[in-house]
Nucleic acid binder design. Structure first.
Lengths: 168, 168
DNA sequence: CTTGGAATGTCAACAAGGCTGACATAAAAC
DNA sequence: GTTTTATGTCAGCCTTGTTGACATTCCAAG
């Protein structure tokens, strides 16, 4: 790849140099660590991991979701998700109800205890993001979200958009 | 946490609602998957994992770095890093040279073979980021970087800034 | 109605890559 | 000369990915 600035027509595209891209890559790496740091601390105290957080988050976002739907959002194998779900169900954080229309399906719900954990985790994570957002202002936040969306795989972007719209 | 929009003075801070923050959180989650997807594919073909990528990336960024410095950047234990470094050295991707000033230290360098892999990985990752950057334009990219920097832990931000400055 | 395939979810076993703890070695620092 | 620092190694554990085998349920073709 070239390290020179690309130009199209008269527009200077200095922000697309390899050096600028490398900074973006390293920013993603270091920021993601901060992004997960607070929940990780809370989780490890309780004997859970990041996988439990993800499951709890998306069950909370879409109560009654099926295992299959959760699988396509999380992008792991059903066996891997199953292990996490089993412990959450055993510990009384998640309830699994056999589907009425299709009895092969399991619909997942957070219990009150599950909602408590979810709230604790998302509060910690939101606090960090709120501080960052407040520090940089709304225009920067718009740019942040635009770049992230453009970086997603299209299948994941579909999930993101569906969840985004469901929230409004 | 409140779901109402905060206000300070006359400024409306609608972008700090829990709902907006939740979208930022989910954007980070889905975007990070895209961010690592291409290198992950290349790595698994060769029998390596994300841990090898991280080591190779930062050795390439700071040739001659010591094990200790790498540890503090990567935030893992020496046992964990050592396992990865050992395989990279055995496979002839990384060279470990005893320090001249302090002979306890090992200085790490990529071999030609290591540089080849690094280039393959970073090219794939840059291509995705370049496409995203190009799609959204320079102002959005500035916002993206600002939010990410604000989200880092301060210790990691120091590493980030040092690397960033070294690149200019 | 039966039967075979597809969809869904569970159990078992394995691998990568985190972690801690204990310990060895070498060199620097005091 | 003793202590501290930097590094490497061994053993063993945990989380969370993976694949393979299997049970259950639904549905559609015969």
């Amino acid at each position: 790849m070239s390290d020179k600035a690309s130009t199209t027509g008269n527009e200077t595209l200095l922000f697309l140099t390899d050096d600028q891209l490398r900074k973006g890559i390293e920013a993603m790496f270091f920021a993601y660590r901060g992004f997960t740091a607070d929940p990780d601390r809370i989780l490890s105290d309780k004997g859970y991991g990041r996988a439990h957080h993800r499951a709890v988050h998306f069950i909370n976002r879409s109560p009654g979701t099926t295992v299959n739907n959760l699988l396509s959002i999380l992008g792991v194998t059903k066996q891997s998700l199953n292990r996490v779900l089993r412990t959450l169900i055993e510990d009384g954080l998640v309830e699994s109800r056999v589907g009425t229309r299709d009895r092969r399906e399991r619909h997942l719900y957070l219990t009150e205890k599950g909602e408590t954990l979810e709230s604790e985790l998302s509060t910690a994570q939101r606090n960090r993001m709120r501080a960052a957002f407040r520090q940089v202002g709304p225009e920067a936040v718009v740019g942040f979200r635009q770049v992230l969306e453009a970086m997603m795989d299209s299948e994941l972007r579909n999930h993101y958009v569906q969840l985004r719209e469901a929230g409004e």
